[in-house]
Amino acid sequence: MNKSKTYKVLHIGKYHPPFMGGIENFMADLMMQQVADGYNVSAIVHHHQKGKSYVEEVDKGVKIFRVPCFGQLAYAPISPSFGLYLNKIIKEQQPEILHLHMPNLSAFWCLLLASAMKIPWVIHWHADVIGSVPDMKIKLLYPFYRFFESRLLKQTQKIIATSPVYLSSSLPLQKYKKKTQIIPLGLSQYGAKVSVDETSNIGCEKDDVLKLLMVGRLTYYKGHSLIIEAIARLKSQGKTLKLNIVGTGELLNEIESDIEKFGLIQDVHLLGKLSDEDLVSEMQQCDLLCLPSIERTEAFGVVLLEAMRESKACLVSDVPGSGMSWVVKQDETGFVVKHGDVDDLVAKLTDILNNMHLLDDYAIAGFQRFSKQFSIEQVSHRVSSLYRELHSDRIF
């Protein structure tokens, strides 16, 4: 990387680890890599638990400012004091770039603060607020959100979209394609169990049990009910599949009910929230990471990178406008099924059971694709190039 110029960067995000989320994991890895690249990096985020006081801390060289949060409204953290803290932090840290991770209601404070308006911005567009099947609360509140969202997009100098597929389908970004660049999400290599040179050693004996893993919030768009029904159908045909589900969320009771209804108590296990170490262990023990999401609220799927990093094949759905089937290459690094289609999911899992040897081939290809395109070092390099463009285009 050309280190001739580095910057003081303030990231504005929703949360930060130990909160578990794809965007949060990516943001943490990006900031850690930026520190390694010589940047002065800080981040202002919300506490992910109510009732916590403002705190400043350092995590792996990154200064983290956690602002009190009083709950959520339509999945958005409510923090009336965020603007006051943001103004204070900008004056203290004197960042040269604001890196806004969207969607994030609190990022709108940038429009109201003179201190923020003096600094060039980058908007990292992780997802649209409105999905193809929007939650009713979000649908009702979005017109108010959109007023500020459009002004934020107009004001920013650069926008990052995470895949060409998502950019082409995102209505809010259509007016701003000229200042948008495609930079995929990425992760550090720390969890990888093999290097590219060692992938020939990945093969192992497989039994007749297909071990599946799902990781993510227990929420409406993830497709838990589809895969549970598919497993039930295959079990009735004498096939043996095991599914471990990692995560917590509002659909816990509904998913438990589905497991009981289909008689899968011995076949499907809810593991709840896991530590990073335990999650890596689950990844390493599974045969296939499944993300059968039903709509483009699943904009990218960072968990796919986590699986590819651990040399695991992935199964995703072909949701129009989602980056999932761009991250996972059909019949190369994994499998793509029709979104919302249990019949196609059953057929695909049947094919996998009949061709278990493909899992190793796809695992090797997935790890190689991760190393070449989704390592955080390469992603950070591309973000740095965008920063330099941002400053070269701006007149101070």
Rank of each mutant, 00 (worst) to 15 (best):
V122I: 15
I123H: 05
V129G: 05
G131L: 00
V133Q: 14
P134Q: 02
K137H: 11
L140A: 13
L141I: 13
L141F: 12
Y142K: 02
P143W: 08
F144T: 04
F144G: 10
F144S: 05
Y145C: 04
R146T: 00
F147T: 09
R151V: 02
R151P: 00
L152K: 05
L152N: 05
L152W: 04
L152G: 09
L153T: 05
K154H: 09
Q155H: 15
T156S: 15
K158T: 01
A161E: 04
T162Q: 05
S163R: 04
V165A: 13
V165L: 10
S168E: 12
S169F: 12
S170I: 04
Q174I: 02
Y176S: 07
Y176W: 14
K177R: 14
K177F: 03
K178S: 14
K178D: 13
K178L: 09
K178Q: 13
K178C: 00
K179A: 05
K179F: 04
K179T: 03
I183N: 07
L185H: 11
L187H: 04
S188E: 11
S188C: 11
S188N: 14
Y190V: 11
Y190T: 11
A192G: 13
V194R: 10
V196M: 10
T199Y: 10
S200D: 15
I202L: 15
I202T: 01
G203P: 00
C204D: 06
E205V: 11
K206S: 09
K206H: 10
D208R: 07
D208E: 12
D208N: 14
D208F: 06
V209H: 02
L210P: 10
L210S: 09
L213G: 08
M214E: 05
V215Q: 03
G216R: 03
G216Y: 02
R217N: 10
T219M: 05
Y220D: 12
Y220T: 11
Y220N: 10
Y221D: 07
Y221P: 00
Y221T: 00
G223E: 07
H224W: 07
S225Y: 08
I228Y: 08
I228Q: 09
E229S: 13
